[in-house]
Design a protein around this nucleic acid. Structure first.
Lengths: 144, 144
DNA sequence: CTGGCTTTGTCGCATTTGCAACGGGTTTCC
DNA sequence: GGAAACCCGTTGCAAATGCGACAAAGCCAG
């Protein structure tokens, strides 16, 4: 009685597919408008929350490899969206922060993200609450 | 009043992080034991459900690029886990199927996957039902 | 049947990715 | 005060990835 395995019911798989589709769908917006990659979008979005953040913090909170964050930051700096500055209190750290241009971009992107989010919540309908709580649960335990 | 954007509440982002963590956590199992990549695992897992499947079908259902499926299949064939055979009814198609060795591997992997799944459901606890329904909802609408 | 038009899988190529190693910086502990 | 251990960000490199192009095969109208 071996092999009653059903991929479609397997949670890591379903999450991957779902995440892939949602991210791809949404990524069109910032890619077409600003030429951002997904990694770059994440960095910028994270920076819009807290003002000056080190690479390490993003790496930890955003589930991206150090090098990925680092390279995204380099590209964003070249594009003029963020600044990189070595921290004064700890010269190992690099403080990332949005430039004026970066803030403008986020000001344009934030409503679009919100709209996308709202649409998803509409799709979820009555299941929204349960879904979000479950996601919380898995996220908080899976790492911290 | 611009920029009230909170990345942590943004669904595509949360799904990406969650999917990444779950997949990475589970991938240790089949990577250490059988040296499979994530793409290869997906192909094999899919094949364990339906006997003979074309590259195209997997590409469509599993959210992987054609070339990704193709290359994963090539590696799996070289490793002796699957066979590739051009279909008789339509010679464009390539029928993928598990070998005996492939079935053995799945027989070993299936219970481990089940155990992982059970653990996740335990983590979800009372939220499990709501979460799964929500995921269904998003998946069924996001593409088909 | 024959000449388009679509579909399927593979491959080339440029880019991205993850991992490990490295070079500075800092803390710790004697 | 200094050396060993540790932490941070960048870079090199091999592997993986996505995209477009391509050949082979099927389909379809005339």
């Amino acid at each position: 009685m071996a092999e009653p395995f059903i991929l479609d019911d397997f949670l890591p798989y379903r999450m991957s597919v779902l995440a892939g589709r949602l991210s791809r769908e949404y990524s069109r917006i910032y890619q077409e408008r600003f030429g951002l990659s997904r990694a770059e979008w994440r960095v910028v979005a994270h920076l819009s929350q807290e003002s000056a953040v080190s690479v390490r913090e993003i790496h930890a909170r955003v589930d991206m490899d150090k090098s990925k964050v680092s390279r995204a930051a380099t590209r964003l700096e070249q594009a003029g969206y963020i600044t990189k500055r070595t921290s004064i209190s700890d010269r190992r750290l690099v403080e990332l922060a949005l430039t004026g241009k970066g803030h403008e971009m986020m000001a344009e992107l934030a409503p679009l993200a919100q709209a996308f989010q709202d649409e998803l919540l509409t799709r979820l309908g009555a299941h929204a609450d349960g879904f979000l709580r479950g996601a919380d649960r898995l996220l908080e335990i899976s790492d911290g």
